[in-house]
Structure formats: structure tokens, C-alpha cells
Design a protein around this nucleic acid. Structure first.
Length: 431
RNA sequence: GCGCCGGUCGGAUAGCGGCUAUUCCAGGGGACUGUAAAUCCCCGGCCUUAUGGGCACCGAAGGUUCGAGUCCUUCCCGGCGCA
């Protein structure tokens, strides 16, 4: 029932094509995992999901648990609630970071750009990373002095950590105090919730760290994550769910190796790499590649490997090349809602005035229902976005998810046919 | 002709004596990586030696005042009412 089989390994890289068998269906890997945080893919109905060629959806323990509140005990399980295909749930560990440190520092993710306002005081205090990002995005060559000054601010920010934090991490677990009120999540609770949610794959409770965290904190955090991993294993009562252990360790080589070595020898059915730094300010793109290179040698080859929260198309190609099997990311769905449509020639913003009245297709040879069946033109979709019609985001979401899923299908085929590197080069050149 | 009301960015608005004229929409640009996100940020009169700085500006012209988009006078324009 729960089984992972590698069908073909690439000769020149660590890429592999395989099959992940779950009680609710088969996932051909490598596969892009669609994000359905609250038990639904944003903007899509249950009937829309199969149209996108989605194989696996990831929902979130923390958000479902907090949103459902009283109704949680009566929750019928995600398969009845969302769709009857393969589902994984994230442990809620990410929220220890995103609602805590990440929020404090105005980061969408590790050092990413997020200058949305919270309270004015906090915004001002935590605006350094966002300010640097903004500076970089506006100016081609910020001077060293500017960046240095901003980084000094960043360090000041770190020293203010935990004061006013909405999340307090202890040895045992994490205390939250957010819009839902106060709550406490630890390994046992996370696993109990994930068993109740009923996903085919569940994830051990962990604590991600940021590039802004120093070695000392990252090491302490790693020890917590390892301890929580053991507790997560011990807490499980169901045998019809796979459990993935999570590798952490920031951008520190010895910590990553220590983590992968420790997690890799535990009795998990699969492994996830967390805290992987996508390309963003404060986390050079190379960091993610290094993290994968350091970690994967310690993970049992025959078990599936998931890369948490990644990513962009280039990242996916690289991760496949380095031996990863699945990836979840918000990009296809979020960017769709924001008007960014993906094509094999890159993405474009459908809201721009230039598309008004355009008879051009989103992508001429796209096989998604929006392009191939509805034959929607850019002009039509532009108008829907401008009219704030709710179908705009839905159609864009269907297209983008299909695009990513179809890309992964082509990647799988290229691995099976022995032409992965050629396909990667060709695709990225046209993008 | 008389009376009233009103003219503030492309449109709509706030400000009714005191820092740098508000907000929304439309327009232009950018971002988005285990979802605080169908969201957020920036631009939007002119000049400039440009991470800054300077000069304009609230229909027009005068006036009062230390200080006027704001008060006064006249004019222009629009709406409504009365002849």
C-alpha cells in the first residue's frame, strides 16, 4: 500500500523517476505538490482539481487545526473534505517560523521580500531586510555602504528577537498567540492532528531557521528538531500513513550533514529537506544547491525525498538533478491569483494594459482546460481580472497548476528517456 | 439678470488659517519559494550636479495675515433655482 519504487535513474545526475503508491492513488515522481493549506486549493472547487493533472496536494496542520476550532473533532478527514487523491500534511513546524521570526522580520520566507505593514513600530523596527530587498529591486547596483548599513540594521533586529514575538519556542514545543488566540503545538499534538486529518503522508514536527539566525541558534534549533523527530515517530499510531522526517541545519555544512545523518537513520518512510533557501535576498541561490548536496548523501536512496517550499522552475530542475522527488510551493497558485501566468516562454502579467483586447492565447499549444477547451484569450482573461471577476483567479490558477504539472511530466519523461540534462537546458533557455 | 451651491492629479474625493495637500479608482513599474497573500510595494507637475536636493501647485487676478487650497473682493467656468 505504501511504497516507493524508483523506475529509472539518470546516468549523469542524481535525478530519478519513480512511483509513490499511497492508499489514495499513485504519484509519479518527480512531482510538483500543489498547496492547499486550508483544505482547499485556493480559488478552485473540488471538481477543478483533477483538471489540473494534480497528483498530490499538501495541506497545513496548523492552519486547519486553528481554523476548524471546535469543529476539528468532527472533521471527516481531508479526503472527504478536499479531494480523494493523495494528500500530505505539513506539520505546522513552518508556522513556528513564519508566524514568529519570519513575521517579526518582515520576511515572507527566509530573508525574502515582504514589506507589508504590521504595526508601524514593528514595521519600522523590522524593515531592514525588506528595505535591502526593496533597494536591490529598484537599483541595479546598490553601493556597499548602503548594504552594509542595512545589514547592521538586520543584526540589530535579531538582537530584539523574541521580545513581542507571536511565537515562543521552548524545548518542548511552540506557543502561538495569533489572530486565532493562544495555542500550543508540539510533536505529539502535531502528529495527533495529522492522523486525524488523515493525509497519506505526514511530516515530523520541526523548526525551520533563517539565514539571519547565527550558528549557535541554528545548532540549538537543530537539536530541538531532532528531538521532535523522535517524539513524532513515537507518537504515531497509524500505519497507513507515511511519515517524513525533516532535515534542517540552515546554511551550515556541518549542521546539515549532522541533521541528514541523524534523520536519515531514523525509521521514517521518507524524508523532507526544510529551510532550503530559494533565491532571495540574504540567501543566495547557491545555498539551496549546497544544502541539497550536503544532505542527500545521508538519506537512504530507496526512500522518497521531498523538498519543502521550493519552488521556482530553475529550483525544481536543480532539485530533481540533485535527487529530489517531490516539491511543494505556493508559486503556481499565488502568482496566478496575482495575475502572473506561466508559459514555456516565461511568465507575464495578464493585468497589464497591453493585453486589453488581445486575441493571443495564454500559450498557444498549452493543453490545459483554460487554453485547450475554453480557448480563453489573453484579452478575455485580462478583462476578467480588471473586472475583479472571481473566475479570473480560478482560470489563472488552473492554467498555472497545469503548467507546472505538465512541466514535471516532461521532466519525468526526459529522465526515463535518458535526456534529462538536455531537456533542462532546452527548457531553461527558452524560459 | 438675480440668488444659491460648487471648481483640488486622468476621474472621484479629503482638507475650511499653521510641518512635506488626503484617500480611492483608472494608468505605469516591481515583487511573490513547507500561504498573515485573489496580496503587497513603488511611480504618477517641472528642474536637477539624483540613495539626495530645488521650484511650482488647489479655476484666474488682487487683497487681509507672520502665515491662505482654506478668509475677503472681482472676474471666469459649471450645476440648480427664480425672473
Amino acid at each position: 500500500m505504501l511504497e516507493f519504487e524508483i523506475l529509472k535513474k539518470d546516468r549523469r545526475t542524481n535525478a530519478r523517476a519513480g512511483v509513490l503508491k499511497t492508499p489514495h492513488g499513485i504519484v509519479e515522481t518527480p512531482s510538483y505538490v500543489v498547496v492547499g493549506t486550508h483544505g482547499a486549493v485556493r480559488c478552485l472547487s473540488a471538481e477543478d482539481i483533477p483538471k489540473t493533472k494534480t497528483q498530490l496536494i499538501i495541506s497545513n496542520t496548523y492552519h486547519l487545526w486553528r481554523t476548524l476550532g471546535e469543529k476539528f473533532q468532527k472533521f471527516p478527514g481531508l479526503h472527504k473534505f478536499m479531494w480523494n487523491g493523495p494528500i500530505m500534511t505539513d506539520s505546522g513546524g513552518f508556522q513556528v517560523f513564519s508566524l514568529g521570526f519570519g513575521r517579526e522580520h518582515g520576511m515572507g520566507k527566509f530573508g525574502g521580500i515582504d514589506s507589508r505593514k504590521t504595526s508601524s513600530f514593528e514595521t519600522r523596527r523590522s524593515s531592514a531586510p525588506a528595505a535591502e530587498a526593496a533597494l536591490r529591486s529598484r537599483r541595479k547596483n546598490p553601493t556597499d555602504t548602503e548594504l552594509f548599513r542595512l545589514r547592521e540594521l538586520s543584526q540589530d533586529d535579531i538582537s530584539l528577537e523574541s521580545e513581542k514575538n507571536l511565537v515562543r519556542v521552548t524545548e518542548d514545543g511552540a506557543h502561538f498567540n495569533d489572530d486565532y488566540g493562544e495555542s500550543y503545538l508540539d510533536a505529539e499534538t502535531s502528529i495527533k492532528i495529522q492522523e486525524k486529518l488523515g493525509g497519506d503522508i505526514i511530516v515530523a514536527f520541526d523548526e525551520p531557521t533563517s539565514p539571519l539566525h547565527d550558528y549557535k541558534y541554528t545548532k540549538e534549533s537543530l537539536e530541538r528538531t531532532n528531538a521532535w523527530a523522535l517524539r513524532s515517530l513515537k507518537a504515531r499510531t497509524r500505519k497507513d500513513q507515511m511519515m517524513y522526517g525533516v532535515v534542517q541545519g540552515g546554511a551550515f555544512e556541518d549542521l546539515r550533514k549532522e541533521s541528514a545523518e541523524f534523520i536519515g537513520r531514523q525509521d521514517f518512510e521518507g524524508f523532507a529537506i526544510g529551510g532550503s533557501y530559494g533565491e532571495s535576498m540574504g540567501a543566495p541561490r547557491g545555498d539551496m544547491l549546497s544544502v541539497l548536496r550536503w544532505s542527500t548523501p545521508y538519506l537512504p536512496e530507496e526512500k522518497p525525498r521531498h523538498l519543502l517550499g521550493i519552488g521556482k522552475i530553475e529550483d525544481v530542475f536543480d532539485a530533481v538533478e540533485l535527487g529530489m522527488d517531490t516539491f511543494d510551493c505556493v508559486i503556481p497558485t499565488r502568482e496566478a491569483r496575482h495575475g502572473s501566468l506561466w508559459t514555456k516562454f516565461g511568465r507575464f502579467d495578464i493585468k497589464k494594459g497591453k493585453w486589453a483586447g488581445s486575441f493571443m492565447k495564454i500559450q498557444g499549444d498549452c493543453g490545459c482546460p483554460v487554453c485547450a477547451e475554453m480557448k480563453i484569450t489573453r484579452g478575455e482573461l485580462h478583462k476578467l481580472f480588471k473586472n475583479k471577476d472571481s473566475t479570473a483567479a480560478r482560470l489563472a490558477t488552473i492554467h498555472n497548476i497545469f503548467f507546472f504539472n505538465d512541466l514535471l511530466r516532461q521532466i519525468r519523461e526526459s529522465i526515463k528517456e535518458g535526456g534529462f540534462l538536455e531537456f533542462k537546458k532546452e527548457f531553461l533557455t527558452n524560459l
